[in-house]
């Protein structure tokens, strides 16, 4: 008999941008008819009544909530539904994501992981990339949302052959009961860059003097920096409690030295005391730095080295002879076994000691080349002798 029906569905086929972290979904069906056998239903006669009163499905979706109902009943419905949820329906509620600002290298995650720290795979959501021959499904991690994996994870090392220029991504959402396809609101374009330069080698430079804190090191990497790229290095020192940030833990270079061997280097300021060190580095495009406590440092490779002190300047000295006559001032001192770092020359200074602490210069700095020297023309007095090497280290 007289028949009417209606759906009240909060969200029908389509994609919706929702300015909230939850959304209310409702499917409500109702039908009514006059079950008059004169119209061929063979049921209780002549009475109009409403069926499927009430809400069939309702839920408040949070991120990653989904719902699927596949209707398998009569279609078309000829004599009142047997199933008040006479609808095939599939929905998923996702957090909006955005492509990273700046450039990514092949090792970096394309999108940040969702704030719950869990990797989510979404059924019937498939990521596509713009290949050399048009849109194509990505080879790995197709259903991951957000796509918190790297270019290498998705494509492997041959990713450069898969597409040209920047990486363009979108996802499609499908359901088994329809050929309709929904594409993501956004097409995400990800700019790519080379990863941090590969490590080449590291050489440590000892302190100049045994007691000075002016060691250094040279870090060599295998490629030059791009024009707007800088190398940021963070240095760790081994304290008695273990490795921690060195007192001056960072240096930045936007201009590496091109070494004769084809590598590119940065030489650290000569301000390091002897000890054990570790260095980590990464590059940054554009302005600003990367704080030494930024979490990105934790995952980077570290390179260890040791700065040693230079050899202490040492010598022996003895009186060779006193004055031969009264006030002839021909006394001699022999200085021998003079030791320092190799390839250094030496100077001595001779003081006359007056009282306990007062000295006056008797012979000013005089250089000598070998590891021994005889100091002549000394008068009868108390003498004090001091040596320095050509780097200014004293003994």
């Amino acid at each position: 008999g007289d028949y009417r029906n209606g759906y009240s569905v909060t969200h029908s086929t389509g994609r919706y941008q929702i300015n909230s972290n939850s959304v209310y979904i409702k499917i409500d069906y109702q039908e009514g008819y006059n079950d008059d056998p004169g119209y061929g239903c063979n049921g209780p006669c002549g009475q109009y009544s409403e069926m499927c009163n009430g809400v069939e499905y309702e839920s408040t979706f949070n991120h990653f909530s989904s719902y699927e109902n596949i209707y398998s009943g009569e279609d078309p419905i000829t004599c009142g539904t047997q199933d008040c949820l006479a609808i095939s329906y599939k929905a998923v509620f996702l957090p909006s994501i955005s492509a990273p600002v700046g450039k990514l290298c092949e090792k970096e995650q394309l999108f940040a992981q969702y704030s719950d720290g869990v990797n989510h795979n979404v059924n019937d959501l498939v990521w596509e990339f713009y290949s050399n021959t048009g849109w194509k499904e990505i080879p790995n991690h197709k259903n991951r949302y957000p796509l918190n994996v790297s270019l290498l994870d998705v494509f492997g090392a041959s990713w450069r052959t898969q597409f040209t220029g920047n990486l363009q991504l979108r996802f499609k959402y499908t359901a088994p009961f329809t050929s309709d396809v929904l594409y993501s609101f956004s097409t995400y374009t990800i700019s790519l860059t080379e990863c941090s330069p590969e490590f080449d080698s590291l050489s440590a430079f000892k302190t100049k003097c045994n007691y000075s804190e002016d060691g250094s090191f040279k870090l060599k990497v295998k490629r030059d920096l791009d024009s707007n790229e800088k190398l940021i290095m963070t240095l760790y020192y081994q304290y008695s409690t273990g490795f921690d940030l060195a007192p001056n833990p960072q240096e930045t270079s936007s201009n590496l030295f091109n070494e004769p061997d084809g590598s590119y280097s940065h030489t650290w300021s000569e301000n390091l005391p002897s000890g054990n060190y570790k260095i980590k580095y990464q590059t940054k495009i554009g302005s600003g730095g990367i704080s030494p406590t930024d979490p990105t440092w934790t995952t980077l490779s570290e390179y260890s080295f040791t700065i040693t002190n230079a050899r202490r300047v040492e010598f022996s000295a003895e009186k060779l002879n006193d004055e031969s006559c009264f006030e002839v001032e021909d006394g001699k001192i022999r200085v021998y076994n003079v030791i320092s770092e190799s390839n250094r020359s030496f100077s001595y200074i001779v003081y006359e000691v007056q009282g306990t602490n007062t000295v006056t210069v008797l012979k000013n700095w005089t250089s000598f080349a070998s590891n021994n020297v005889i100091i002549n023309n000394l008068k009868k007095t108390r003498l004090r002798l001091k040596l320095k090497d050509s780097q200014g280290c004293f003994a």
Binding site: G1, D2, Y3, R4, N5, Y7, V9, H11, S12, T13, G14, R15, Y16, Q17, I18, N19, S20, N21, S22, V23, E31, Y33, Y39, G40, F61, H63, Y71, G73, E74, D75, P76, I77, T78, T81, A86, I87, S88, Y89, K90, A91, V92, F93, L94, P95, S96, L125, Y173, T174, A175, F177, T178, D180, L182, S184, F185
Partner: peptide
Amino acid sequence: QSELYVLSVRPQNITGP
């Protein structure tokens, strides 16, 4: 900010003879 994706298909109801 969130996104909702929905696909739905309804059977063809008849509206009476």
